[in-house]
């Protein structure tokens, strides 16, 4: 049953560009990018119970690394995707090593300040980012072919997304995934079982940065323009809201949240002045009444309804 559902979803995703308009394909690319961002956020918050508030900054690092790799070095994009992820992870590793020395929440505070600092860097480092004028992203190349349209980019973006989902599942089922959850539930108990607590947190944070970096490279494949304004705290909150709507701590929740709330946020672009209130209210209300996310909330209530 579950396999069938997955296959149906996959088939739908594959035929999507054949039957839809350009805008839908663009939106699909965007949602897949946000799916990867959400998976990164899921690993650090949902699995390991740590806070990273710099998802947008790592996303930006990924975008600019990939842009630089395309123009300056002319790398084929699989290499630049990997490079984007690695650069983001490396930066994450540096911050995480320092921030996790004392209290857990220092990671939240350090990444919060890092996000603001990076936005300033993106705005000021004109030779790489174009500064306040934004950056025209050069087209990515694969085997000498240039990817110029959303439709051409879609299969690539979809493939990377599936790869990242697969990696997330693999991590969750591995020894490392169990260590993440052990640290989340009780540090003392995890320590007693021989889990290196600080290293585990650090790995979770670096992985989430890696995912965000890869998402940045994905964005650079189909998008042609990036402005530092869209790499601020707002984007981090958007990703957090997606993960919260989908349900903290579940992979399907992170994916579902990215798609459901991604569509909602696309609609909300019509009313930008209400965006902040709506995001904030969603965060508060979900934490109050549906901490396990929209899907679990609906499921629980259906069960209760069936029983009554």
């Amino acid at each position: 049953m579950r396999i069938l559902g997955l296959l149906a979803a996959l088939a739908g995703l594959i035929v999507l560009p054949l039957v839809s308009t350009g805008y839908v394909v663009y939106l699909a690319n965007l949602l897949l990018t946000f799916t990867v961002l959400c998976l990164g956020m899921h690993i650090v918050i949902g699995e390991a119970g740590q806070f990273s508030l710099a998802q947008a900054a790592f996303f930006g690092i990924g975008i600019y690394t990939s842009g630089l790799a395309n123009t300056a070095f002319g790398w084929p994009f699989p290499l630049s995707v990997l490079a984007s992820g690695l650069v983001a992870a490396l930066v994450g590793l540096c911050i995480g090593t320092l921030a996790l020395r004392m209290r857990d929440i220092y990671l939240a505070l350090a990444t919060f300040a890092f996000g603001e600092a990076m936005q300033w860097v993106f705005l000021s480092w004109t030779s790489v980012t174009g500064g306040p004028n934004g950056l025209r992203i050069p087209p990515a190349t694969l085997f000498g072919l240039e990817i110029v349209s959303d439709r051409q980019a879609y299969p690539v973006v979809l493939a990377i997304t599936l790869l990242m989902i697969w990696a997330t599942v693999l991590i969750a089922r591995s020894r490392l995934g169990r260590a993440f959850r052990a640290v989340r539930e009780s540090e003392v108990a995890a320590l007693a079982m021989g889990v290196p607590v600080r290293t585990t947190k650090l790995v979770a944070f670096a992985l989430s940065a890696f995912f965000a970096g890869v998402a940045g490279a994905m964005f650079a494949i189909y998008s042609t323009y990036i402005h530092p304004d869209s790499l601020g705290f707002q984007t981090t909150i958007l990703v957090l809201t997606m993960v919260v709507v989908g349900g903290l701590g579940s992979i399907s929740g992170a994916i579902g949240g990215a798609i459901v709330f991604g569509l909602i946020s696309e609609l909300l672009r019509q009313a930008p002045s209400y965006q902040e209130i709506i995001y904030g209210l969603i965060l508060i209300i979900f934490m109050m009444f549906a901490p396990r996310g929209l899907f679990a909330f609906i499921g629980d209530n259906l069960k209760r309804f069936a029983r009554a």
């Binding site: 929440i105 903290l248 002045s273 995001y279 904030g280 965060l283 508060i284 934490m287 109050m288």
Partner: peptide, 21 residues
């Protein structure tokens, strides 16, 4: 609703956005 401190922090982030909006 849930004992996790992460959830309390998320609620304060929500408040910050509501107030700004």
């Amino acid at each position: 609703a849930s004992g996790s401190p992460v959830n309390l922090v998320i609620a304060t982030l929500g408040l910050s956005y509501v107030l700004k909006g």
